[in-house]
Computed example of a mutant assay.
Amino acid sequence: MTTPDDDDAFRWDGDDDPTLSVTPDAVAESSAVTAPDPEPVPASEEPADAEPAGVGNVALVAYGVLGGVYALWTAGWVIGALRLRDYIEGQSGTVADFMFQGSMWLGIFAPAIWFIVSLVGGRGKAAWQRFVWLGLGVLVLVPWPFVMVGVVGQ
């Protein structure tokens, strides 16, 4: 069902309305009649459901770069831990024990866990605090088995 207001868009009626004029006189009149500026609302009286400011473009790019570093760290842990496991099994002739398997998988998933917890846990914090935690994770979670054994193994 259409209302008369919807049908107005399809007709030329009302084009002689002076408020629709774009002449310099009409622009001067419309700028002279402006509403007064509303008083600023103190921070304590702001509505609770107000959305926080969004993340800037630079921060998004930095999150993407750090996410890529964490993905490389995960790949390094996979390669290094599997090479180390093969090295341990080759030297001792036994299957790597349960504790080694658990720590290997924890090491593999640690970069992804750190990245997610830093972003989700720092949601209400300032952006620089999230970057501090992400930078600390890049330093702490270096894939040492990959660094020490390498891709080809020694």
Rank of each mutant, 00 (worst) to 15 (best):
T2P: 03
T3H: 02
P4Y: 00
D5Y: 04
D6W: 04
D8I: 10
D8T: 12
D8S: 14
G14C: 03
D16Y: 05
D16M: 04
P18V: 11
L20R: 09
S21P: 03
V22S: 10
T23P: 09
T23Y: 12
T23S: 15
P24D: 08
D25K: 08
A28D: 14
V33E: 13
V33F: 10
P42D: 13
A43E: 12
E46G: 09
P47E: 08
A48S: 13
P52S: 10
A53P: 11
G54K: 10
V55T: 04
V55L: 01
A59P: 01
L60Y: 00
V61G: 01
V61I: 00
A62M: 14
A62N: 08
Y63T: 01
G64S: 02
G64R: 02
L66Q: 03
G68N: 03
A75L: 15
G76R: 05
G76A: 07
V78Q: 04
G80D: 07
A81R: 03
L84A: 14
I88E: 13
E89F: 07
Q91M: 13
Q91N: 12
V95D: 13
A96H: 09
F98V: 08
F98K: 06
F98Y: 08
W105D: 06
L106W: 09
I108N: 15
I108H: 14
F109T: 04
F109D: 01
A110Y: 00
A112Y: 04
A112V: 12
I113M: 10
W114K: 07
W114F: 12
F115C: 10
F115T: 06
I116C: 00
V117H: 03
V120D: 11
R123A: 14
G124I: 02
A127K: 04
W128P: 11
Q129F: 07
W133F: 09
W133V: 07
W133L: 12
G135S: 05
G135L: 01
G135I: 01
L139C: 15
L139K: 08
W144D: 03
W144P: 02
F146I: 02
V147W: 09
V149L: 15
V152A: 15
Q154T: 10
